[in-house]
């Protein structure tokens, strides 16, 4: 549906332009509308769960790292949307569970796991997708950017944990978990793809 809207909107916008410009703006409209749709869904889920702040902070921290780290991409937009919704619901339920069983020991465990995920992101990122390959210069630049971002995010979440601001700290921790998860999924996807061609 978003593809259809993008196509029609681009054809109106680029009526006097060449085919290349039309494709470009169709792509731009598509990614803008998809992004907005996902953000609205996240906000709606946050409102439904009565955890709007947590929802926004989680998604914000996830986007911040993922933008440069890359990771798993679904093969179709529908799968993508379903995956995002399911993961958002799972994360919000997990955050609620953390609040219910909250203790200093639990917080320390969460931070420890976050450190492992952050290290994983630090070492593995960026991972390119098949539809948007990266050249060597981009990989080297994004590697540095991701390392800085994930270090800052981890440090920030640690400071917030120390200050007792769990409403922001815990969603950030889950944002880092998600980044680690999508990178791991992409790594497995690449490994399975390579093995399929070797055997």
């Amino acid at each position: 549906m978003i593809k259809l809207i993008s196509s029609k909107a681009a054809s109106i916008l680029c009526r006097d332009d060449d085919k290349e410009t039309l494709e470009l703006y169709e792509y731009a409209i598509y990614i803008t509308l998809s992004g907005l749709f996902h953000i609205l869904t996240v906000l709606l889920l946050g409102i439904c769960f009565n955890m709007l702040i947590e929802s926004v902070v989680f998604y914000g921290s996830f986007i911040l790292i993922r933008k440069f780290a890359g990771g798993y991409h679904a093969k179709t937009p529908t799968r993508c949307y379903l995956f995002s919704v399911l993961v958002s619901i799972a994360v919000l339920c997990s955050i609620r569970a953390v609040y219910a069983f909250y203790s200093i020991h639990l917080l320390v465990c969460l931070l420890f796991v976050e450190l492992i995920c952050a290290l994983f992101v630090f070492l593995i990122a960026p991972l390119q997708s098949d539809n948007k390959p990266l050249d060597e210069k981009e990989i080297n630049l994004y590697k540095k950017v991701v390392r800085v971002i994930v270090s800052v995010v981890f440090a920030f979440s640690s400071v917030l944990a120390y200050l007792g601001i769990e409403i922001v700290c815990i969603p950030i921790i889950f944002g880092v978990y998600m980044c680690g998860l999508v990178l791991l999924m992409r790594k497995v996807q690449i490994y399975l793809y390579k093995n399929r061609f070797l055997h």
Binding site: L13, E23, L24, A28, F68, K132, V182
Partner: peptide, 29 residues
């Protein structure tokens, strides 16, 4: 178009979409 150019610039200078689906990028990007 100017607004969309900002989105294109952001997308071109990152590893991809932050959503879990990355459409095929046009060469003009």
């Amino acid at each position: 178009k100017k607004g969309l150019s900002v989105a294109l610039k952001a997308n071109a200078n990152s590893s991809g979409c932050y959503i879990i689906y990355q459409p095929k990028v046009p060469k003009a990007l």
